[in-house]
Design a protein around this nucleic acid. Structure first.
Lengths: 140, 140
DNA sequence: AGTGCAGTTGCGAACTATTTGCAATTTAGG
DNA sequence: CCTAAATTGCAAATAGTTCGCAACTGCACT
């Protein structure tokens, strides 16, 4: 499972980041969201809790969290970046081209294979999540 | 190998796209570039050949080519999208976080594994190129 | 509990990447 | 060649994200 709101404060402290009510709000919004929200979505959700948070602060909080490894940012081909709490296990993302839904594809195998291939070229992988565009298979 | 300028015209015709000098210029620029140029790079290169092409046209041409499957667009985490001619073999991209270089990682194995995993979830993959952020390994 | 100061916030304006409206031009086909 | 429909260049518009700055706040140290 993913961190509970109670743990939020210590996550920030452990990362040496100041605990502010805005950051708590943003993290809480992210923790409760399992649909890979965009910055705008996070902003909307955070605003329900604290109507005074600004868009800029949401962006700054997200950037801070990503830098601290607490959250992750996914660049999607078109449209805004989307965010999620950093998962314990690396996974890829499937974006359904028909409805924009994002689902996760976890596979040790995939991660291991990529690491091996990158290493063969003399590189270490810093982030290995990737986004695949997919469509639901029809069951005929 | 990738298409030669001579083939450009027929690539467009085959796709049912009108052949214009601007599109020829844009494709030629893409064909000759093996560094995954951004739209701006393509614009700069196209402009050397035909000083009158506009930025808007480059974007429109790239969009048209991508839609026709002649070119591909890569969303990179930060910075502009980058383009390349559609390769015969699918491959992933490694972006060197230190210098921004992009290299290619081809692997049948990787592609096959992803297809299998996506199929298990009931999806077919439409595009499976992905972008990994990497750093050169130090040889100690 | 009080104080200082670096870190953080909200606001709007700035910026970057990309798209669009429109009149003029060009293409493909008969 | 002639015409309809597609394409272009330009400049202005948009989407997403970042930034400058004055006001505010968390945290370390009394």
């Amino acid at each position: 499972m993913i961190a509970q709101p109670d743990e939020i404060e210590s996550m920030l402290r452990d990362a040496g980041i100041r605990v502010t009510s805005q950051r708590r709000t943003v993290i809480a919004a992210l923790v409760q969201s399992h649909d890979h929200p965009s910055a705008e979505d996070v902003y909307a959700r955070a605003k329900l809790v604290d109507n005074s948070v600004s868009f800029a602060t949401v962006y700054r909080a997200l950037a801070t969290l990503v830098e601290a490894g607490i959250a992750q940012r996914l660049a999607v081909d078109d449209g805004p970046a989307r965010f999620e709490m950093a998962p314990e296990t690396e996974h890829d993302h499937l974006v359904d081209v028909d409805n924009g839904e994002v689902l996760e594809l976890a596979s040790e195998e995939l991660a291991a294979l990529r690491s091996r291939l990158a290493a063969e070229l003399g590189y270490e992988i810093i982030s290995q999540r990737s986004v695949l565009r997919v469509r639901k298979l029809k069951k005929p």
